[in-house]
Design a protein around this nucleic acid. Structure first.
Length: 195
DNA sequence: CGGCCGATCCACT
DNA sequence: GTGGATCGGCCGA
């Protein structure tokens, strides 16, 4: 069942990041359906969060998408070669977002393998935000798409994600953010217990 | 307009 | 564990 607008528009981005674990991210690109269970997320808490692109209320052509209403896709290019996919949360003009860092591929696996080439190492797959977007066919030009639309949406797969299977800790790659880099805004569902 | 840098990934040692 | 790839976005001049 597709998640409703109200799921994304809630005020606490950290809660949304936690609850996105176990949900199914579904994407139709190039006529191909690919989906995966979300296993790792990070919250970016808007204008007060030094690690966020919207820190200090900054608005640019790129970050403007973060100010859209909850349930919008924010995708941007990192290191000149990787698209990173985020879920915009909270109401319009509050630039909160959740980065999807890892998924467990579910449907369209052969399509994902074709897109990512030989990115299958030690049994892991689609772990890492750049690889997730690549496997799902998401490009930074897709930034701004509605998550209640027909290209990208998220479903409640009916999976239970108990607290004792969830790791919570600091975010990755945000050392530049000072004290905010230490905030426990990263959630990881321990995949080894899923099977 | 020039220069710096990044919410990363992979090959290689 | 480490360094290179690679280029859009952002800022300062």
């Amino acid at each position: 069942m597709k998640l409703a607008r109200s799921f994304y528009e809630r005020p606490d981005v950290v809660t949304v990041a936690r609850e996105l674990l176990g949900k199914e991210l579904c994407v139709v690109m190039d006529g191909q359906l690919t989906t995966g269970i979300i296993t790792e997320t990070e919250a970016y808490a808007g204008i007060t969060d030094r690690a966020s692109h919207a820190f200090g209320g900054k608005r640019t052509a790129r970050t403007e998408i973060m100010y859209a209403r909850g349930g919008t896709a924010y995708v941007y290019l990192c290191y000149g070669m990787h698209s990173l996919f985020n879920v915009v949360t909270n109401v319009k003009d509050v630039p909160h977002a959740v980065l999807i860092r890892a998924i467990l591929p579910r449907k369209g696996i052969s399509t994902m393998k074709a897109r990512t080439g030989k990115n299958v190492i030690n049994g892991a797959f689609s772990n890492g935000p750049g690889k997730v977007a690549k496997a799902l066919g998401i490009h930074y030009s897709h930034s701004g798409l509605d998550l209640l639309g027909k290209a990208i949406w998220i479903s409640d797969a009916g999976l239970e994600v108990p607290d004792d299977q969830v790791l919570c800790g600091p975010r990755i790659g945000v050392d530049y953010a000072g004290d905010d880099a230490k905030l426990p805004y990263r959630f990881c569902w321990n995949v080894s217990v899923i099977k």
